[in-house]
Structure formats: C-alpha cells, structure tokens
C-alpha cells in the first residue's frame, strides 16, 4: 500500500517538475545563439551585389542589407513552426523560417536566368557546363537532380528535358528527405 502511494506521489512529482520546466528559450539565449552562429556553408552561399548570404544565416541582417523586396508571400510552414515567409528580389527568392526561435534563411531559389550563383550557374545553361562550374564540390545525382552538400546547406540543380538547368536552389540539407 505504502509503495503504491509512493509510486503515485512520485508520478505527481514528475508531472509537477515537468510543469515547472520552461520549454521556451529566453530571449537572452536566442541572442546568444545568434551571436555564436558560425556559417558552415563554405562556398555554397549566394550573393546579390555585395551581400553574401547562405542557409541558416539570421534573416534580419540579410534582409536589411538586401533592401526592400519586390514583394513577399506567406504560407503556413510544414517543416518549421509558424510561417514560410518568401521574399522576392530580382531573379531570386529567399525563404525564411523560425528555427529554434530565430528567423533564419532556409531557402534561396534562383528564379530566372537574369542572375547566377557565385560559381556562375544560371537557369538555362547546359547542365554539363553548370557541373563544371561547381568543380571541386562533390555532388550526388538522383535522376535529373544534382545535389551538392556542404555543412547544413544543400544546393540542388535540376536538369530539364533539354539538358539545361531548369532549377537551382539552396535549402537546409537536413530537410532533404
């Protein structure tokens, strides 16, 4: 009997302790996380003018440096808490999500052939030419898709039926399922 009551009380204590635990991070911690952030994308970054940025970079600084976007779009996110926030700029799009309490860049899409990535890859060029430009970064091929991974970043090039680059985008490697 005493053992049984002890077990029940223990269970209640666990409930109470769990309830007391705060699973939300403090803003100080979030600030520290941002301050301690070191990009791990190596050469797999994107650049627009003088602004260089990559996957998991804190979004606020990048968006501020890029200036006012042409337009924006929001939808509920499946991969993250909250919203998928898209920012459209000339020739490219940036996706921003809340990652552990900090707004971070989780996607960069080359939207048309008016821009290229820092290696020179652009929409519409021959896929062989694009792969040559990415020389030095290992890739894996899956069907018509070529995937380059460095740290947390996945850069994906997709070939169209005519053997040219149909799409090019940067995303979070961990989300590649």
């Amino acid at each position: 009997m005493k053992k049984f009551i002890a077990i029940i009380l223990a269970v209640l204590c666990v409930f109470a302790l769990c309830a007391c635990g705060n699973d939300g991070g403090s803003s100080d911690n979030d600030a520290n996380k941002t301050a301690e952030y070191k990009p791990d994308y190596g050469e797999l970054y994107y650049a627009s003018g003088d602004v260089k940025f990559g996957i998991l970079d804190p979004a606020a600084d990048v968006l501020s440096a890029l200036g006012e976007p042409d337009s924006t779009f929001e939808s509920n996110s499946c991969a993250y808490q909250g919203k998928d926030k898209f920012y459209y700029y000339d020739g490219f799009e940036i996706l921003v999500n809340d990652v552990d309490g900090t707004e971070r860049i989780t996607g960069i899409t080359v939207a048309d052939d008016t821009v290229s990535n820092p290696q020179g890859v652009k929409i519409g060029m021959k896929i062989d030419e694009a792969l040559a430009l990415m020389d030095g970064i290992e890739y894996a091929q899956s069907g018509d898709t070529y995937k380059f991974t460095v740290g947390s970043t996945l850069f994906r090039i997709q070939a169209g039926d005519d053997g040219t680059v149909a799409a090019a985008e940067y995303s979070v490697a961990a989300n590649d399922k």
Binding site: F73, E93, A111, G143, R156, Q158
Partner: peptide
C-alpha cells in the same frame, strides 16, 4: 494574389 513562389525542386 501577387506572385507565387517558384515551385521547389523535388528529387522524386
């Protein structure tokens, strides 16, 4: 509606 995002590339 203004502009929709570019459809993401899927492997499969």
């Amino acid at each position: 509606m203004t502009k929709l995002p570019t459809a993401p590339v899927l492997d499969d």
